[in-house]
Design a protein around this nucleic acid. Sequence first.
DNA 1: CAGCATCCGCTTTGATACTG
DNA 2: CAGTATCAAAGCGGATGCTG
Lengths: 208, 208
Amino acid sequence: MRSYGQYCAVARALDVIGDRWSLLIVRELLLHDGARYTDLRKGLPGIATNLLADRLRDLEEAGVVEREDAPPPVATTLFRLTERGRSLQPVLRALLAWGAPLLTDGQRGDEFRSYWLKFPLEAQLTDHAPDQPPVAIQVQTADEPMVVETVDGAVRARPGVVDDADLTLSGPPDIVLGVLMGALEPKAAKKRGLEYAGDPAVLRRLLR
Amino acid sequence: MRSYGQYCAVARALDVIGDRWSLLIVRELLLHDGARYTDLRKGLPGIATNLLADRLRDLEEAGVVEREDAPPPVATTLFRLTERGRSLQPVLRALLAWGAPLLTDGQRGDEFRSYWLKFPLEAQLTDHAPDQPPVAIQVQTADEPMVVETVDGAVRARPGVVDDADLTLSGPPDIVLGVLMGALEPKAAKKRGLEYAGDPAVLRRLLR
DNA sequence: CAGCATCCGCTTTGATACTG
DNA sequence: CAGTATCAAAGCGGATGCTG
């Protein structure tokens, strides 16, 4: 990117990560540290492959990303965030918070990966009854199942399955997200394609 | 900007404010609410006038900026942030914090406006002795003088002059900033063009 | 197959000139 | 003062080809 040529911290930051796709690459690496080129392409639908290569090079030069030639049997290049790269998390969090209201008008044909739910869910949900036994919610939407669970008073979301989930949600991403963010009543959501099974109190415990 | 087409809050946020110059326009309006088109141009050295007009239109459509046709005697258009626009402040703060280390390698011919110091100074400085009488630092660098002063235990920076400053700093922006951020010792700074007069304890009170 | 590089058409940006 | 208009240059998106 061409520099803004301004002696200002915001402008200098944007000189480094203001390029199109750059912050989304950082998002992918925050969600999936040690990703292969192909993983990044899958997580960045719409990016041109030459741009991904360019950006990775730029970010590497800027000290945000580092590449590691994994030894056999993997024998592939892994891309990681440096410490400096991980310190972009507050920027992503702020953007996430600002952008969250823009999700309420539905998916509108946008691409979606269910592990993208990790950040909004962990930001929004809190365990309001950490003394109670832990709970787990199984979420099924789009490409892969996710688990939302309480761990030591914190709420964690990860790809995966649990067989003893206290609550199971499945349906379109925007509906599932709406319910999990407390913006949509389960009753209304059922009419819009939500499958809902288990204990509703679990949701109230995390939402409040 | 072309949409990323991803159902993700970060991507949707970037769809709105990820365009080149957009966040710097927001910076200007946060620093100078109710700015005229010409004020914005002065505060955004390097922007092409058609781009400024385009971005202001886009941001207005997105509900970030609003324009107000000021009545006489002003009789000009004023641009303001909406509430939604002001809520971008955490994003700017996060970018500022991330970009701050990039300022330490000097100004390198970059443009500078002294009121840009407001955010970094207020973010970095704290009044560690709020019970003591208030203090003021007069800062003179580049285009206009700035005052850094304690107000009810907070630190405020604003364009202007005070005649009873406890400390006066003047010199090149990067040197003055280095001293005020505590990254540069006054002694070393003097060798690099800093004029320094008054009570050094004032600085220690705000830095610690 | 993973990790690019190249080519090409299109869009965005930048610089400058001009206007109500 | 607050923009349009114009045009060249750079950046982006999509397709495809190359190399280990």
